[in-house]
C-alpha cells in the first residue's frame, strides 16, 4: 500500500515514457530495425557514441585523480576545516549545471576571463581557443562531476578505522606502503561507486557539451539535434535506446565485478 503511490508515479512518468521511446525507435518507415541500421551505418553517429564513451572515461579518470587527495584531506579535517571543505564541495554541487556551464563559457570564451588574464600577463599574444574544444569541455565536465566523485570517496574514507594506518605503521609499513597496501584497498568501494556515478552521469551529459562544444557532439547532443532540427523521432529514440542498453550493460558488469570482489572477501 505504501509503495502504491511512488510506483504509480514511476510507472506514469518514467516507465511509460521510456516504453514510448523504445516503441518509437522501431517506428521507422523502412522497417522495424531500420533506425538501428541507420545508427550502425552512420559513421558520424557511430563516432558520436565512441566519443561519448571516450569522454566519459577521460572525465571519470580526471575526476578520480583530482578528487582522491581532496577527499583524503577532507576526511582527515576536523572542526572548522571540515566545514570549509564540505562547503567548498557542496556549494558547487547544489548549483545548477546550467549555471556552471554558462560560467565556464564566460571563463573560456575568446574574450573570456582566462584569455584576458593571460593576455594581460603577457603569457600569450592572441586569445587561445578554449571554448568549443575537447579540452575546455572536459575541464568543465570534470568540474561539474567532482562532487559526485568526492562524496562517495569521502564516505568510504571516513569509514576507514584510523587504527588501520597505525597498525600498518607499527608493523613496518612506511607511509607509501601504508597507502598502497592498506589505505587504497580500504577506499576502493568509494572509488568504484564514484567512478560508476561519474561515468554514467557523463554518458548522458547534455547542457555542458551543448554550450561549450567539442570535436564531436556527445550522444545526448546528437539526440537533441535529431529531435529538434531533423525532427527524426525514431532515430533519436533508437540512439537513446542504444545509450540506455550500453549503460545498463556497463552497470551490470560493474555489479558483477563488485560481487565477485565482495565474494572473495567472504572467504575462498
Amino acid at each position: 500500500m505504501l509503495l502504491a503511490a511512488p510506483l504509480t508515479l514511476l510507472a506514469l512518468f518514467f516507465l511509460l515514457p521510456l516504453l514510448t521511446v523504445f516503441g518509437q525507435s522501431f517506428a521507422a518507415p523502412d522497417g522495424p530495425l531500420g533506425t538501428y541500421a541507420r545508427v550502425a551505418g552512420d559513421s558520424a553517429l557511430r563516432y558520436s557514441l565512441i566519443y561519448t564513451f571516450q569522454t566519459a572515461a577521460i572525465v571519470t579518470l580526471a575526476a578520480l585523480v583530482l578528487s582522491y587527495p581532496v577527499a583524503f584531506l577532507i576526511s582527515r579535517a576536523q572542526g572548522r576545516w571540515l566545514v570549509i571543505g564540505m562547503v567548498l564541495v557542496l556549494v558547487p554541487f547544489w548549483t545548477s549545471a546550467v549555471i556552471r556551464s554558462y560560467a565556464w563559457l564566460v571563463l573560456l570564451q575568446r574574450r573570456g576571463v582566462v584569455n584576458e588574464i593571460m593576455l594581460a600577463l603577457g603569457l600569450i599574444d592572441r586569445p587561445l581557443r578554449l571554448a568549443n574544444t575537447d579540452l575546455g569541455t572536459h575541464v568543465a565536465m570534470v568540474q561539474i562531476m567532482l562532487p559526485f566523485m568526492i562524496l562517495p570517496l569521502l564516505s568510504a574514507m571516513r569509514g576507514i578505522d584510523p587504527s588501520m594506518l597505525r597498525a600498518a605503521a607499527i608493523l613496518g609499513a612506511n607511509p607509501w606502503r601504508q597507502f598502497v597496501n592498506v589505505y587504497l584497498p580500504l577506499s576502493t568501494p568509494g572509488v568504484g561507486a564514484g567512478c560508476v556515478l561519474v561515468f554514467i552521469s557523463t554518458l548522458g551529459f547534455y547542457i555542458t557539451p551543448a554550450l561549450l562544444g567539442g570535436s564531436s557532439p556527445m550522444i545526448a547532443v546528437a539526440i537533441e539535434q535529431q529531435v529538434s532540427r531533423l525532427l527524426d523521432w525514431p532515430l533519436a529514440s533508437a540512439l537513446a535506446t542504444v545509450l540506455l542498453v550500453l549503460t545498463c550493460a556497463l552497470f551490470m558488469l560493474y555489479e558483477r565485478l563488485n560481487r565477485r570482489l565482495a565474494g572473495a572477501g567472504e572467504g575462498r
Binding site: 587504527s163 588501520m164 597498525a167 600498518a168 607499527i170 608493523l171 592498506v182 584497498p185 580500504l186
Partner: peptide
C-alpha cells in the same frame, strides 16, 4: 603492538 580493536586488515 596489539590494538584494543585488534586493527586487523579486513581486506
Amino acid at each position: 603492538m596489539v590494538f584494543q580493536n585488534y586493527a586487523l586488515f579486513p581486506h
